[in-house]
Simulated assay, not measured.
Amino acid sequence: MPLAVAFSGGADSTVLLHAAAARWPGQVQALHVHHGLQGAADHFEAHCMAACEALGVPLWVGRVDARHAAGESPEDAARRARYATLATLAQSRGLADVLLAQHADDQVETLLIALGRGAGLDGLAGMPARIERHGVSFHRPLIGLSAAVLREWLRSQGIAHVEDPSNADPRYTRNRIRQLVLPALQAALPQYRDTFARSARNAARASALLSQLAESDLMAAGSPPALEVLRALPAERLANALRHWLRRDHGAVPSEAQLAQLLVQVAACSTRGHRIRLRIADGRVEREGPVLRWYNASPTP
């Protein structure tokens, strides 16, 4: 069955492309995202074209403007643009599966970023081996291998790759972790990749159980959820249900303060006259008679 490899030309995706082409000869196509964020992007594309030609692998290029909006993380903006472009490229070629080259060090960096942001179980679960986005299945077959192992294989094979200069830019959180934190972890906890991965798997299992509980509670509450049913839930279970409802049905992730305020308002909603109108993420939650409703952001009257 044909599949795609997200190919940036860097060390990790170069290993992945060579491994996939050897494992599934004639079935692999490469997808390259030209971000347009730096002058070297044209050089990266040319390198990828030459590498794919040498392997006999078709290459498809998508160009995207991944500049971030004011107040938005440049890393998050680039990642979202990359996934959307990869999915569009894959679907245009009739490909349902895309391989990503993220590895064990990327997983550790992701967990540390999540800890730094005060993330819940979803964030601490890290990157799963498989995700669905934009109608495409993305797979991470290298998630259990370290960056050092991948680069050593490239050196042993004498295979060229490009180095993205932005990977050394200390303005980006992930780069600071890579340069400063991972060497310290290696010295203090040599098995940290394995133990962090185990913690991520445990968090993912716990997160899945909470999601199942939330689904059960929301099934009882209906859609939109009935306040009477919500108010009967214990506080932590109510928080879990509301968080899940907002994320599942509306793609909204409330801050800790926003969720706490919503919990207070739902608990206090014992009379018909009690009004709820709270800003949550990029929209708002309101009481409408016996139920809670979500509204996209709009000017407040």
Rank of each mutant, 00 (worst) to 15 (best):
H34G: 00
P141G: 12
Q157N: 02
Y192C: 03
A78V: 10
A188D: 13
Q191I: 04
A260R: 11
G251W: 15
R174P: 00
W245C: 00
G273M: 08
S13I: 08
P183K: 03
D169S: 08
A101W: 02
D12N: 14
A40Y: 10
E215I: 07
A114Y: 14
A4R: 08
A21M: 05
Q29E: 13
A87K: 05
A232Q: 15
H47A: 11
A54Q: 10
E53K: 07
A214C: 03
S137A: 15
A204W: 12
V57A: 04
G36M: 06
R82V: 01
L227A: 00
G56W: 12
R193C: 02
G126C: 10
I280P: 01
I143H: 07
G135Q: 06
H250I: 05
L16K: 12
S207K: 07
M1Y: 13
H134D: 14
L145H: 11
H250D: 03
L17N: 04
G118K: 10
A70S: 10
Q186Y: 00
R275P: 01
W245I: 02
P128V: 12
T300Q: 09
R237I: 01
A4N: 09
P224G: 00
R284D: 05
I159L: 15
Q261Y: 04
S73M: 05
A235Y: 05
R79H: 14
A50Q: 10
D105T: 03
V285A: 05
L218F: 08
P224N: 02
Q27M: 06
L112T: 04
V253G: 04
H139V: 11
L124M: 12
R82T: 13
G116R: 07
H18P: 02
A232P: 00
H43V: 11
L59A: 02
N296M: 07
C269P: 06
L112G: 00
E75W: 08
E109D: 00
L259Y: 13
P234L: 04
A46C: 04
